[in-house]
Design a protein around this nucleic acid. Sequence first.
DNA 1: ACAACCTTGACACGCCTGTGGTAAGGTTGC
DNA 2: GCAACCTTACCACAGGCGTGTCAAGGTTGT
Lengths: 129, 129
Amino acid sequence: MSEALTINEAAATTGWSARMLRYVEQAGLIEPRRSPSGYRLYGAAELQRLRTLKELLAAQDIALGEVGFAQRLRRDRELRDSIDGWLDAEPRRPAEVADRDWLAFEKDKHTALLDVVRARRTPTETTPA
Amino acid sequence: MSEALTINEAAATTGWSARMLRYVEQAGLIEPRRSPSGYRLYGAAELQRLRTLKELLAAQDIALGEVGFAQRLRRDRELRDSIDGWLDAEPRRPAEVADRDWLAFEKDKHTALLDVVRARRTPTETTPA
DNA sequence: ACAACCTTGACACGCCTGTGGTAAGGTTGC
DNA sequence: GCAACCTTACCACAGGCGTGTCAAGGTTGT
């Protein structure tokens, strides 16, 4: 037994709806354990978590999916690294010291293509009908 | 001047549509500088950024909004801290050493409420019609 | 001065999210 | 064995995202 609430009881104490509790679970944020017959069982820890989650969403004005994404970010190091890497690249300067280096590297690859496009500025086909 | 492309040219080189370029800008991810008359001007840096952004989205199978959110996360320390704080709290155990501490703190506040609800398990009003 | 480009703003449309229902069927307590 | 609960699986509906497209109006190059 171990004092645990079923979904509607948990809903009543936490202010979520039963529907939302299932949704939160599906979002991978709070997964209560199950009784042998499959009933969701919310313990004190889960209830607390549900309440704080609610406060978090309200306080920061974010959505469930965003918390889920943050969770994914911390679990998936590769994802985190590649996004961070992209964001770390030049944030706002057109030609900075640090930029020049990686720019030189990449620009090389596309230099020809750039010229091609600039040459096409006269013909009537920039945007193919 | 400083060799920069206008939006349709930039679209052609990067594989995005002009529409999407404006959208990406609105998402706060890549904001090209403007000509005196307001035309968007994409320099080599922006073009590169557009290409790598595209690769990032494809490789990690994420959406523009998620990159935007990651950006928001790193800019807004308070947001980051509160989400991290929530995720750091007990991930899966019902009663752990670390949990016990903050649980004891919070549980106190809600202990009475919990009892009230468990008492209501008999009457016909768990879910108010 | 005209064609070809740019700008913002809007409508549209399909898909995903958040949320509430409802239906068909197990579980449980009295 | 019945009422009250639980489960999953759908339908619905508003609102946001990703995109295209169109309109009304400025800019620009030849």
